[in-house]
Amino acid sequence: MSKNTLLEIRDLRANIVGKEILKGLSLTINEGETHAIMGPNGSGKSTLANVLMGNPNYEVTGGEVLLKGQPILGMAADERARAGLFLAFQYPVAIPGVTLVNFLRQALNAKRGVDVPVREFRELLFKQMDILKVDRDFARRYVNDGFSGGEKKRAEMLQMAVLEPTMAVLDETDSGLDIDALRTVAEGVNSLMNPGMGLLLITHYQRLLNYIKPEFIHVLVDGRIVKSGGPELALELEESGYDRYEAAAATA
């Protein structure tokens, strides 16, 4: 019996300030699967994350993206989020004046379409904060304001934990983390993963993949997936780098 498809990207093309970055990218993620897209700088990794989420600064010029069979490219970012998509940002923006707890509560209310009772919300929040090893004061701070690199990533994971997306995209979640923080964040992600959910890790380095184990690895070079394989592919990239694939793409 084939699994249900969660995310289907078909021949996706996208520009930023008139320059084509994604040049026909296709990828399918089924329920319960963890995928990793690896690629060198400038290959289009962050563009993919932004286009999937609906960042208005990126222009889609071709292709289709389906989330649970529903086309999402015509939706605003907030609609995509409510449909179950989540992007953990590499560099989340600071919002002075908005506390994390207030932000999370509004986000959860928007996601569920009803006002979640305060007590239920607090219980959910505290449970997830314990898993991510952040203290209770953390939620009273302004969103990402003055956060360290590790705190920002934990805050992203906390949002993911509270919002319980069906399809999560993690953009360079390992960057800026020391080994302990990386382990905590990875444990958090692993505890959230469930058979009905899909996970896409976007990363330059293999480091994160020691803690979150994807079944599928894709190599992104020059806006296209040039090779797909199993976990062994990540190890190969760690040893020999992207040079071989970049050279092949250049001559293609």
């Binding site: 989420m53 605003a76 970012a77 989020a81």
Partner: peptide, 29 residues
Amino acid sequence: DEEQLYYLQTRGIPYEAAEALLVRAFAGQ
């Protein structure tokens, strides 16, 4: 701030509510 608006929207908060949240934050300071 466009980036702040976008960030709030990526968490499911509609545009108008996101803008209101940012205005409250602005005044709240």
